[in-house]
Amino acid sequence: MSTLQALVDAVALGSIYALVAVGIGLVFGVLRLINFAYGELITAGAYTLWVLRSLPAVVAILACFAVVVSLSLLLERVAFRPLRKATPATMLIATFAVSYLLQSIYLLVFGSLGNSVSTLAGLQQAVDLGGLRIRWITIVSLACGSLLLIGTAILLGRTSIGLHMRAAATDFQTARVLGVRANRVIAFAFLVSGVLAASVSVLFTVQNSLVTPDLGVPITIFALVGVVVGGLDRLWTATLGGFAIGFAYSLLGDKLSGEARVYLPSLVFGLVIVVLLLRPGGLFAGQPRSVERV
């Protein structure tokens, strides 16, 4: 039974990381920009929940979405739009700088000790399903995760803005020539990724109630690693990669005994290196690229 339990937990963590992966992947798709500051959006949402902890949960959660989405759009406008023509290295380091800036603001405003969020603490309680003790948050994470992923898939596949985004992700220049409005598509990508970040804030703080200024850093790193392992070029492979990393992390954490458990990050990173060496294009990328020139 405990194996099944571990599987369920792994799927739940996997679905949270899948959401982060989609958020990073959407922006990468249209801008070729790896947004290292993505985790700081999640942190912003978590702090919003903390600040509004005395209000009803619904209000706090709505505010969390509003804050995170605005911050995401603001970053796009102020920081990333001027950098569209810059080299990939500069863009990457600029997102680092933004991440550093936001973290130091959180540190300044909220201090380093951490604040405890209990907006949806009730979800920590478990239900008994035929001998399986499953916490509500696991079920909610799974449900929200799948709904949001399906929602994003519909958005991308069935709406005209989604079509524009996919076109832009395939070939930005050609898409522009054919009348796709660059600013609109990019802003929309940041909007959707902001919505996803906000939902991760809500789900993540239930499991991990302590909010510190660097809360978002490990989330971004693991999701990013997952995204690259899955294959960045297409959204669904990136999503699967994100899911895989959360799943593997949770499952390996359960299987390792106490002593070895501290080396779990090493094990995951080691696996990542192996995957990258064997399949540089990504684990789920299908056929290797015909021309891997270098």
Partner: peptide
């Protein structure tokens, strides 16, 4: 990403 993984390890 691979070098980042090295740093993590």
């Amino acid at each position: 990403i691979a070098t980042l993984a090295v740093l993590g390890i």
